[in-house]
Design a protein around this nucleic acid. Structure first.
Lengths: 190, 190
DNA sequence: GTCTATACGGTGATAGAC
DNA sequence: GTCTATCACCGTATAGAC
């Protein structure tokens, strides 16, 4: 660990950041190699299947980042509802006003490619599923029924993806803040 | 009304449909003119600012469609909560399995362009705002406080945009159905 | 006002030198 | 293994014929 990052890692991180901000079709390979100062030939050495393969690794990279973040959120608070509420409030500060540089982790790519690239669609689906499985386990532990926990995991994921999109579009923290305030209502019935 | 559609209308409808499915950067002008059987020169006659201008009109077109749909939903049911629940359940049937041809009305374009085209970002923001203003008025009428109504309008919009994205990505009605079931919980506290 | 032909830069991808 | 040179194609946009 903590070795100096390989060319492959640098490419994945640059691609992940750019895809989040402008989506799959909105970013060219040229920009990715310029940003990472790695020649185009090397990209095809590491990713023989080109842009699609790079995108899948970039999606998995973003998935893992968010996964760690979600786990951390629940670890640092005994009450899962309060933990989620605080998490979304923190997101509102990240995505309001100057949130341009962050972007939707996966949503935009998913919306562009669900009908054109089955491998990318599956990578996005896998990310959503893994995030939600953390939610489900937390809600089960907190005493909600299995059915209710699963429904809640869909709703939380949709609220966060949708809320980030609204905040980015409005360049405002307000949408995510409103969502943060409403989260406890969702959990009224076990 | 009900005249035969002009070339401009045909272009807007084709663009709107394609942009919903693959986003702004995922669709080329070539495909739009092929689909609508209208020559490229005519496109620039009707939309001197090219793709960006066409996209803005396509967004407004999609916005109006959804706006009418939302109004209809509330008109056909006295209970706004039940109306929303039924609406999302109907959406689940539309976007599961064979929902490929429908696509996110505005979310994908918003996610791709919020940082690259200010005119398009504003058009998307306007769409979200207009949809939510319908929600706010309905919730006010139903007795919720102004603050709560506004929060709820953000949450409902995020749940629907996020839920459609999840259903498209999973090629399944399940995410939107789960969200439909949970909607009443959101409205427990006035 | 409608449509054809074309310009020209950028796209993802590849071959092969070092 | 790393990088350069180049490909064929597609992107948006435009000029100008009818």
């Amino acid at each position: 660990m903590s070795e100096k990052p390989t060319s492959k890692d640098i490419l994945i991180e640059a691609a992940s950041r750019l895809f989040r901000i402008r989506g799959y079709y909105g970013v060219g390979l040229k920009e990715i190699i310029e940003e990472s100062s790695i020649p185009k030939g090397s990209l095809y050495h590491y990713f023989p299947n080109g842009k699609e393969e790079l995108a899948i690794e970039a999606i998995n990279h973003a998935k893992d980042l968010v996964l760690r973040e979600i786990k951390h959120v629940f670890d640092s608070n005994d009450d899962p509802v309060k933990a989620l509420q605080d998490h979304v409030y923190e997101l509102s500060k990240l995505f309001g006003e100057n949130g341009d540089l962050v972007g939707l982790p996966i949503g935009t790519i998913a919306g562009e490619t669900y009908s054109t690239s089955e491998p990318i669609r599956l990578a996005c689906q896998d990310a959503f599923t893994q995030w939600q499985s953390i939610y489900v386990n937390e809600f089960l532990d907190a005493g909600y029924s299995r059915e209710r926990s699963k429904e809640l995991s869909f709703a939380i994921n949709a609220l966060i993806e949708g809320g980030i999109l609204l905040s980015l579009t409005a360049k405002s923290a307000e949408p995510l803040q409103a969502i943060s305030k409403l989260i406890p209502s969702l959990f009224m019935n076990k």
